[in-house]
């Protein structure tokens, strides 16, 4: 039976990609953030996943306001990055695990999640940067992926409770999968930040700490706030923590332990965080 080896969470700020591209990892600005990844590399080398279920959000590359899904699930054989408008280098493509995608899709619809199924899906920095951070300098990614895109762009957004439930439903799907893959769960984005409005530059260490302290041991604690309250506490883009919550759900309801945490303010306009969790 497939094994869920654990979960990896990280911020995905576009500027990180620039820093990697320019080799700035040891610069004083970047070092406190990149230093948080030694442990991630070590852990991944040890748990050796071959599939990643990734919860992230599109930033206007694949989805537009003509058709904006609440939850989109990839079912493609390949996923490509593309120009996001800044003319930056294009990230490496990803291999999909289509059979597992369809297994999860069938299970989710049976479980009354009204997903949008994507046989084509461009992936943006929210997926690529966490991979560049986790597996630097590889020729090709060592894992196949099943990507989820959660709407964090256009309100109404799904509630944190619904996102946790989505993740838990994905966990049930993984439990009924008969393959023998080693599966890592990935949640990307956040933590607190706000790019738009007069409150641009807003960061909230207390709320981020609350989220990180509870995510492993009591994820339901993160689902008590409405989206509106989450925006107030985390910032307009800080709601990307929904991806983390869904990813935590996909770890399942058995006990989970935090094995690593790094938190640094600021990376670009963002409180940047990295975490690892394992089944307890």
């Amino acid at each position: 039976m497939a094994e869920i080896v654990g979960a990896y969470f990280t911020s995905h700020v576009p500027a990180i990609g620039g820093a990697i591209h320019k080799g700035l990892q040891q610069e004083p600005y970047w070092k406190p953030f990149f230093d948080g990844f030694h442990k991630v590399h070590e852990w991944l080398a040890q748990v050796k996943p071959d599939v990643a279920i990734v919860f992230n959000n599109d930033h206007g590359l694949n989805f537009f306001l003509d058709k904006m899904p609440t939850f989109a699930v990839g079912a493609a054989a390949e996923y490509h990055n593309a120009d996001e408008g800044w003319g930056l280098p294009i990230y490496k493509p990803f291999a999909g695990h289509t059979e597992l995608s369809w297994h999860i899709i069938n299970s989710l619809v049976e479980d009354e999640f009204d997903i949008t199924t994507c046989q084509k899906m461009l992936v943006d920095h929210a997926l690529s940067i966490p991979f560049e951070l986790a597996w630097p300098d590889v020729e090709a990614w060592p894992v196949k992926i099943v990507p989820f895109a959660i709407n964090t762009v256009q309100h109404p957004l799904p509630s944190a409770k619904r996102c946790l439930a989505l993740g838990q439903a994905v966990n049930r799907a993984l439990q009924s999968w008969t393959g023998d893959e080693r599966i890592v769960i990935i949640g990307t984005g956040g933590l607190s930040h706000q790019l738009d409005g007069e409150r641009a530059g807003f960061i909230n260490r207390d709320y981020d700490t609350f989220c990180m302290d509870n995510l492993s041991v009591d994820p339901a604690a993160l689902t008590k706030d409405s989206i509106h309250e989450m925006v107030r506490k985390a910032g307009t883009q800080g709601v990307e923590v929904l991806n983390w919550i869904a990813a935590r759900g996909a770890l399942g309801e058995a006990p989970v332990q935090e094995i690593h945490r790094n938190y640094h303010i600021p990376i670009s306009n963002t409180a940047a965080a990295t975490m690892l969790m394992e089944p307890a």
Binding site: A75, T98, E99, S101, W102, N106, S107, E110
Partner: peptide, 21 residues
């Protein structure tokens, strides 16, 4: 594909447009 419908008895002359298809 291991969708729930695969456990179902097939419907003669009928091809579900599922993930495989």
């Amino acid at each position: 594909m291991s969708g729930p419908q695969n456990a179902m008895p097939p419907i003669p002359g009928t091809h579900l447009f599922d993930g495989d298809a």
